[in-house]
Design a protein around this nucleic acid. Structure first.
Lengths: 170, 170
DNA sequence: TTCTATTTTCAGAAATTTTTGAAAATTCAA
DNA sequence: TTGAATTTTCAAAAATTTCTGAAAATAGAA
């Protein structure tokens, strides 16, 4: 096996891990994802541990999280008691799943609180109260618009939907 | 001043800080941003320190970062030697600035590396090499499309551009 | 200039997050 | 069942990130 390819894969894994860290995704989780994305064959926990030089506990928890996200699947291999794992290779599919998951887990609760704050400051007729209420409302407005756009993008299934939408927007 | 309003503002600050943490933005930075967003008047470093119960060093560095992002401005007050600060109140404007800044700082370097990896694996004719190359290419493809959409959204100035674009897309 | 208010810096402390690794739990073949 | 292979759990350790606070630097008034 060519060394260059292995180096390229390693660079991909490192880069992905660093990007994850910067965006609030655990480095090991991102690296396991990258490793499985770059692997041709299903991998066992032991292989993942060895390749990434991480502990069993870390490997296990990272894999589980990726399975919970719905972007990594278990793969049973006949005659082997070990579990093997493969990554969803359809980029659009896994990117969407990550986006939807993070939106639900992190953004939706915030939006709910903003709605509450908005409601609680609605009756405040002081200039200060009105100004703050407007600030909160503006944030809600933008997020709602972005959510609508995201839904349009995501709810349409089919391969090159993004390109089509771009053409519509020109 | 009504207590309720102060509570609402505090909740806004806390929520914003927590959201920031989850998305790789320092909690203090996010809280200072929220504090200034919810303030009617320019605030000094000392006022920010007091309101958020943080140290001078932390306050200073958080403010500076927000100024670097271009979403908080210095405001000179006549007859006062202290510096005062105000937040950009136009939500679309500051949201765009944050997005553009993070894209440049964190996403663009990753895209550059993916391009390199892509180039380095182009000639690999093994099935494994071709498969990995495709994976990287797919990621690039999606990011390029998203970037194009983002540019369309961002480069058009004007208030309710998002709503217009949604209508185009229906 | 000199003196004081204000801002900035940054080494060390504190807080938080991540990782480890060994014990406990589970699974499954015999 | 039993017992070995495998997976899961989680308390403690390690790593990383954030924060503090006092000293140094800077700015501006007199």
């Amino acid at each position: 096996m060519k060394m260059e390819l292995q180096e390229a894969k390693q660079q991909f894994i490192d880069t992905w891990g660093a990007l994850g860290s910067e965006w609030g995704i655990n480095k090991s989780v991102a690296q396991v994802h990258a490793l499985l994305l770059s692997a041709s064959n299903p991998m066992s926990t032991d292989e993942i541990m060895e390749k990434l030089v991480i502990s069993r506990g870390n490997a296990n928890m990272s894999i589980r999280q990726l399975i919970d996200y719905g972007i990594v699947y278990k793969k049973h291999i006949a005659g082997d008691r070990k579990e093997y794992f493969i990554a969803e290779k359809n980029v659009l599919k896994w990117a969407m799943k990550i986006a939807v998951m993070r939106k639900q887990k992190e953004l939706d609760p915030v939006m709910e609180i903003l709605r509450e704050i908005s409601k609680n400051t609605e009756k405040d007729k002081t200039p200060e109260g009105k100004e703050f209420h407007k600030t909160v409302k503006d944030i809600q407005g933008l997020t709602d618009q972005l959510e609508t756009i995201a839904n349009k993008l995501f709810n349409t299934s089919g391969g090159d939907l993004l390109l089509k939408l771009i053409k519509l927007m020109i």
